[in-house]
């Protein structure tokens, strides 16, 4: 009984707190990136100022359907995050996450702009790239713990990373793609300097772009939260360890962003499948042999 309330609180905390945490992480990423490039960088709360500004802008959308589609995108993203943080079925969570990708595809197609339409196709390809990694992650989780429920970590004595290192590696690779970090910012990026202008978000402005940004923050918190699945176990110290690992990964991602050019989608597909096949595949075989 206590545990149920605990998990319900987890979901509520996520729904309410993730935007703020996500905004801070976004700001920290920009600041850190700037410092790496020898600049001072924008203030830490810049993403918040941008968000508020977007909400205040005049709405000149090409097609009103985009607002509805993006709202659905946001709702599904929040739902998948809430499901995860309330300790629910991991596989189900990832399937809901995949559905959000479909909504993003439609949101980009609807304005009939050449840039966002081509970027929408790339977004689908991006999904194909990271899907194997997250799905295999759920399978590995099941093999290690005997259930798909994320709350099983708290009954483990050792962190799952000991059993699932390969899955962690391919998940981190998938995270780079999901977070739209160079070298894999193929469908849209945080800088509008690619050939497809700003990719899927080219035709999004004002309110719609604000919705997209909000969804991005929820997504970021969710993805970093999944990393914690590997580190958490029944002891309390593991919580601190999980936060520490997340910070280290955050720093490494900013470093990777600054030291790589954007690759073409063919390379991204090849690389991600190769890494997933190798790391997750080998890990999977070992797990199955141990059982």
């Amino acid at each position: 009984m206590n545990h149920t309330i605990f998990y319900a609180i987890g979901a509520v905390l996520y729904i309410v707190g993730a935007p703020f945490l996500g905004c801070l992480m976004d700001g920290a990423e920009r600041k850190l990136s700037a410092r790496m490039q020898g600049r001072i960088g924008p203030p830490l709360l810049q993403p918040w100022y941008d968000f508020v500004k977007l909400l205040n802008k005049q709405v000149v959308t090409v097609d009103r359907a985009q607002f509805f589609i993006l709202t659905s995108y946001l709702v599904l993203m929040v739902m998948s995050g809430a499901m995860f943080f309330s300790g629910n079925d991991l596989l189900m969570t990832f399937f809901v996450l995949s559905t959000t990708g479909t909504f993003l595809y439609f949101a980009a197609i609807v304005p009939s702009s050449p840039y966002s339409s081509m970027a929408a196709s790339r977004e689908l390809i991006q999904e194909v790239c990271y899907e194997p990694a997250v799905l295999l992650l759920s399978v590995g989780f099941y093999l290690a713990t005997g259930t798909f429920n994320a709350r099983a970590v708290f009954s483990q004595n050792t962190s799952l990373v000991v059993f699932l290192p390969g899955f962690l590696a391919s998940y981190l690779f998938a995270m780079i793609i999901k977070l739209r970090i160079s070298p894999f910012d193929v469908s849209t990026s945080h800088h509008a300097h690619q050939e497809l202008v700003q990719g899927v978000t080219t035709e999004m402005g004002a309110r719609n772009l604000a919705l997209f940004k909000l969804a991005e923050w929820y997504e970021m918190v969710f993805l970093y939260g999944v990393v914690a699945v590997f580190i958490l176990n029944s002891s309390l110290v593991s919580v601190l360890a999980a936060i520490l690992v997340d910070l280290v990964i955050f720093f490494c991602f900013v470093l990777i962003d600054n030291t790589n050019a954007r690759v073409k989608w063919e390379n991204m597909l090849g690389l991600s499948w190769a890494v997933t096949g190798l790391c997750s595949g080998v890990n999977l075989l070992i797990l199955m042999m141990i059982r």
Binding site: S182, S189, H191, H193, Q194, N258, A261, R262
Partner: peptide, 16 residues
Amino acid sequence: TADAFGFESLFYEAWR
């Protein structure tokens, strides 16, 4: 050119 293929830090370095 660095900017065109998404490598901003190289862009800043060249201009510096």
